[in-house]
């Protein structure tokens, strides 16, 4: 579960927030908005790697005062963000919690076991994302934050990755995905639209997209 109340951060030339979010356990949230809207910063604020104010609750515990390493979340940065000096397995091993399954098993869970010995430079965009997802799972966190996971991969890679995230949610993980593409809204339980740092609307995607405001915003984002 992820819940925020009055989450604010400072972006370059405009403030981010306040963002109020309430994703129950197992929910898939999607935060969309044009580039520069503050989507990545919102994730970074949740992860604690940029300063923010407001309340953040993850899996029932308040975390806003905790350093990043003590916030129980899995992190999938844009493009996967794999460390180039380590193999796929090395990337997973680096962040693996003592209680987590071995790196190979985590890679197998996302269909990336054959990539274990490969370096990030030798992986395709989709493969990098899979390894990054395995790495995020290595902390055994109840929450996953994914920054533009579908940006650098083709259509078939996108749908299999989306299915994988869905499957994790079915297992009880709460995921928040950031994307500039509103197409992904049909996969989500919750849709938030961010524009110039402000959360314009947030709610179940069917309701939002059906309403006239949602339609206009959808046009705006597609355009």
């Amino acid at each position: 579960m992820i819940r925020t109340h009055g989450l604010r951060a400072m972006l370059g030339d405009f403030p981010l927030g306040p963002i109020d979010l309430d994703l129950p356990r197992g929910a898939l949230g999607l935060l969309v908005g044009p580039s520069g809207a503050g989507k990545t910063s919102a994730l970074r604020a949740l992860a604690g790697i940029i300063p923010s104010t407001g309340a953040i609750e993850i899996a029932g515990g308040r975390v806003e005062a905790l350093p990043p390493e003590r916030r129980p979340l899995g992190w999938v940065p844009q493009g996967g963000g794999l460390f180039p000096h380590l193999t796929a397995a090395g990337n997973v091993e680096l962040v693996r919690a003592a209680s987590a399954p071995p790196a190979l098993e985590l890679l197998a869970r996302v269909g990336a076991a054959p990539l274990a010995a490969r370096r990030p430079q030798a992986l395709s965009g989709g493969e990098r994302l899979r390894v990054a997802l395995a790495r995020a799972l290595a902390r055994q966190a109840p929450v996953l934050l994914l920054d533009e996971p579908f940006a650098a991969i083709d259509r078939s890679g996108t749908s299999s990755l989306a299915a994988l995230v869905r499957e994790l949610c079915a297992g009880g993980v709460t995921a928040l995905v950031v994307s500039h593409d509103i197409e992904r809204a049909r996969d989500a339980d919750w849709l938030g639209i961010l524009c110039r740092g402000r959360l314009l609307v947030g709610g179940p995607p069917r309701e939002l997209l059906a309403s006239e405001a949602g339609g206009e915003l959808g046009e705006l984002l597609r355009g």
């Binding site: 992860a47 790697i49 940065p77």
Partner: peptide, 9 residues
């Protein structure tokens, strides 16, 4: 930043 967000001190 990624290293910190991934839980590294």
């Amino acid at each position: 930043l990624d290293a910190r967000a991934l839980g590294l001190s």
